[in-house]
Structure formats: structure tokens, C-alpha cells
């Protein structure tokens, strides 16, 4: 299975609006249209978090949509990349400080690429998603390094994080380029 190749050549996108003004969402829709045609990079807008690789989030996180945002993020399989679209998804933008808004999605989920602008132009969104592809490739490589465990790692609180353990062993034993 050439899963890594397929993942790089055809990443699937999940789009979630966390309470924005629709501006960036219609620009994402314009990206799917013929003029900007994001499908030439193999990207398809998928509605299912369990089949998606890239999460495109727009909007400042409103208090009602934040549980859905975290839930959607948690349902996506590893490796996954989060792209925040627009000024209000990055920092809260003009909505920062309003009583029902949080300032930006990075307070709740880790963000890999920030796309600026109010609203983000389709060129910017495509650029951000292409950057996300490189990050996706790097994350895939990190996951697929084979590691031999010398002894059973025991953490203090009983939680074993496979990726942290692997990183520790790689760091001490051999360097992975």
C-alpha cells in the first residue's frame, strides 16, 4: 500500500465553521470552483471527519461551537493538520473580546498553518493548504519511524504516549534525519 503517497497526493479536507461571518467559507467554496480549482492538488471537500486529513477552520470560536470543534478534531485520524482561515480564526479578529467569543481556535486545538486576511483570498487559502501538505508529509514520516523499545517505559501517572517515548528513544540512540 502506498498510503503515504496517496495521502500526499490526495488529501481530503474537512471544513468547519466555528462561528465566522461566512466570508472565508464562500472563499473556500470559490476554491472548489473552476477558477481556483483546488481539486488539481487532489483535494476533495469531505464531510466526514474520519476520512479527512486537513481541517480547515474559519471563525472565532463561539461558546456553543467549541465542543463541536474539539469533537470534530478528535474524530480525525492521525496524521492530521489544522489550517485556520481568516483573521478571526487566527486571533479573534474584530470579534475578540465579545462576550460569546473566544479569541482564535488555537486556544482549543493545535494549529499548524495560520492564513491571514479578512476575508482570506482564495490564493492565500490555497497557499496555506499547500504548506499544510508539507507538514502532513513530515507528520506521516514521524509516525512511521520504526522504534525498538528496550524496556517497558513507565510514566508516573500511568499514561504512555507512544510518540513521546519514540522521540525520546530516537534522541538518545540514533539521529533520525
Amino acid at each position: 500500500m502506498k498510503l503515504a503517497v496517496y495521502r500526499k497526493k490526495s488529501p481530503w479536507i474537512l471544513h468547519y465553521n466555528a462561528g465566522g461571518c461566512n466570508g472565508c467559507d464562500i472563499e473556500i467554496l470559490a476554491c472548489l470552483g473552476p477558477k481556483y480549482d483546488i481539486e488539481r492538488f487532489g483535494m476533495i471537500n469531505s464531510g466526514n471527519p474520519k476520512q479527512s486529513d486537513i481541517l480547515l477552520v474559519t471563525g472565532p470560536v463561539t461558546k456553543r461551537s467549541r465542543e463541536r470543534l474539539v469533537e470534530v478534531y478528535a474524530q480525525m485520524p492521525e496524521p492530521k493538520v489544522v489550517v485556520s482561515c481568516g483573521a478571526c480564526a487566527c486571533t479573534g479578529g474584530v470579534f475578540r473580546g465579545m462576550y460569546n467569543c473566544e479569541g482564535g481556535i488555537d486556544q482549543y486545538i493545535p494549529v499548524d498553518v495560520y492564513v491571514c486576511g479578512c476575508g482570506s483570498r482564495p490564493e492565500q487559502i490555497i497557499d496555506g493548504v499547500i504548506k499544510a501538505l508539507d507538514i502532513l508529509e513530515r507528520k506521516t514520516l514521524e509516525l512511521e519511524v520504526s522504534v525498538r523499545l528496550k524496556k517497558v517505559p513507565v510514566e508516573e501517572n500511568g499514561q504512555v504516549n507512544r510518540r513521546e517515548v519514540a522521540a525520546k528513544i530516537i534522541h538518545t540512540q540514533h539521529t533520525y534525519e
Partner: peptide, 8 residues
Amino acid sequence: YVHRGIEE
């Protein structure tokens, strides 16, 4: 879901 509090 999208209430932000713009009026206030």
C-alpha cells in the same frame, strides 16, 4: 450556534 454578541 454562531451568536457572537455583536450588538452588545
